[in-house]
Design a protein around this nucleic acid. Structure first.
Lengths: 210, 210
DNA sequence: ATACATTCGTTGCAATTGCAACAGACAATT
DNA sequence: AATTGTCTGTTGCAATTGCAACGAATGTAT
């Protein structure tokens, strides 16, 4: 169990027991399919097995933006998002996806041991959401594109534990996630290459000296 | 219990019972005092009785920013924040404050009824954090100062349920929270007044037509 | 009462950014 | 094989924004 798994702090034995709870329904989605809408009564939970999914928000004035993305192993669901009074939220497939769905009740109430391990998993999921939100705020708080880019890259380095990695989304989508103009971001990316801070080929980044 | 109280969904009877748990230590802080540091072993929780407190972050390169602010009734604590690997976080008094501290254990384990109401309160607190984070992301995602300002103002209108209200922090601190230059924000604020979208005197805002 | 610090409000100027538009690379579909 | 669509990469130009600086107003400490 790596430190970002929702099953961290769960023993092997507990995990084996919980596998029963997780035998949910598997579904496939094609790129751009809508996987889930955050409607009021929605109590289902999705885990990404393959592909990448976006959490998108539509604001009052109709603008959409990428709030978060879910890679393999990540969990999403309205239950782990706050009430969305102002914006509409939904989950969309960034590429072809395989998702396992199960109900909140099933995860929480299927075995006898109601409190201990289920509470841990729930806590892990919620804390993951919080951590990713704070990370996003930290990135968006940077005043310049340079700042946003390098803060993002530093987070990914920490996550992948390597100075060389593939950005999990397209550069167009990254610009959306960073809330900057794509062409302006490309310009800044090139400047950073010119200054020998990073090297980059498409979405493959190597950190030289940030 | 209003909808933003951490005691929402708790009955009057349950609330009376829980008051016992909440008889924590009261402390006063003066403006700019540091109320709490988010160190690893910190398991105490604070509730704001009077004043306003900031959640501040210090990034790797030493820049600080206002991530969140806590008004009367709001709860803060490292336990409700994710692990802070990259940035340092701390709570600071934005003005003179009165804070009640108690331990996580005390809130969760002081009476017999361990699961039901305590779980609800914990859930409320965590969901508040998440909701405020998503709100902040939504605001910071706007590309222009105008967008950030009007999105922020719309959220406050919803919160205060009125078209006329006082912004709870100084305009300087608001600029920090919105991650924009203060003078540029003032300029935009004046433009919005000139265009008759809002009227504003200091931090007292009246929405005319957003 | 006086000195000091903070916030508010404003402006000129330089730098950054967004917008629009275009071409090439690549993949998927027909 | 041709077509369609998406993504990458680039540029000129206009608009926005940040920076630096200043004075006025307000509040706080001595």
């Amino acid at each position: 169990m790596n430190r970002y798994s929702i099953f961290r702090h769960i023993t092997e034995k507990e995990f084996e027991e919980m596998k029963v709870c997780l035998s949910g329904e598997q579904k496939h989605f094609r790129k751009n399919d809508i996987i889930m809408r955050h409607t009021d009564d929605n109590s289902s939970i999705g885990i990404v097995n393959k592909g990448i999914a976006f959490l998108l928000s539509i604001s009052e004035n109709g603008e959409t933006g990428i709030i978060d993305y879910y890679e393999k192993g990540a969990v999403f669901g309205k239950l782990f998002s706050p009430d969305c009074d102002v914006n509409l939220y939904y989950i969309q497939a960034a590429e072809n996806c395989e998702i396992t769905f199960f109900s909140y009740d099933r995860l929480m109430n299927c075995c006898e041991d109601e409190c201990a391990k289920h509470k841990k998993v729930l806590n892990n999921i919620v804390m993951d959401s919080l951590r990713k939100s704070l990370m996003h705020i930290d990135i968006l708080s940077c005043r310049s594109i340079r700042g946003k880019l390098s803060t993002y890259i530093r987070y990914i380095r920490q996550q992948k534990d390597s100075d060389e990695f593939e950005i999990p989304v397209s550069l167009s989508d990254l610009a959306d996630y960073l809330s900057v103009d794509r062409s302006a971001m490309m310009r800044e990316l090139r400047k950073m290459k010119d200054e020998n801070l990073i090297s980059a080929k498409g979405s493959r980044i190597t950190i030289i000296d940030l």
